[in-house]
Amino acid sequence: MFFLETSIRTRVTFEKGVNLLGGHTILFPPETLDKKEEIKDVIGYLNNWADAIIVRHSNIELLERMAKYSNAPVINAMTDVNHPCEVLSDLYALSKLRDDCLADKYLFCGRKCNIGLAWRELADVMKLDFSQYCPKGYEMENVNVYDDIRSAIIGKDIICTDSLPKELLPDFTDYQITLDLMMNANKGALLNPCPPFFRGEDVSASVVDSGFFVGYEFKRHLLEVQQAILIYCMEQEEIIC
């Protein structure tokens, strides 16, 4: 596993998940992959011992190069352009809460970034009704975009947010999801803020403390979904062998 020491949720659930499946994890900081040694050579040696390689690294092209040479599945645990485990786990969690999560209407509030782009990937594959709310200049391509949050939230079922770097906060003046705004969404709508969220920035304190918030337990499914991803990828390997 190539992970930042400071990673919490994804790392804890991958480490626990692997251990529960009878495996062992070995943790490296992601900068281990930024050494002078060619990635082909790094993976060439890891092929002797690793059964799966779980990577959090800014550069997705590095993961794709690793996959090219790896005999074991390479699992993306977040890059600068997506976070597939996180959003797949979210959809799985929603499938346990909603009558038909594939028919719900999704709104992502935030800039074009790894979380929004991951939701767009998921929406493309699962044919979700997916829109983005953001100020001009922060839009994702090929997505229905609103620049007014009050219009955006009407008719939506699942409101997803992502926090912003401090320097971008002045551009997102009406960005905060509040109780008042959630009242304009569909009946039974849920707020799914991507952690870490910040009370008073992407979400108001009162909306996080309300029934709209999906709750901390929403993320408990990261454990079995990430285990399932590992098993699924490894099963493909066995079938081919």
């Binding site: 790896s70 699992i75 997506n82 597939p84 594959v125």
Partner: peptide, 10 residues
């Protein structure tokens, strides 16, 4: 082919 998990669109 080996299955990796890098992009959901794969």
């Amino acid at each position: 082919m080996m299955k990796h998990f890098i992009r959901l669109t794969d």
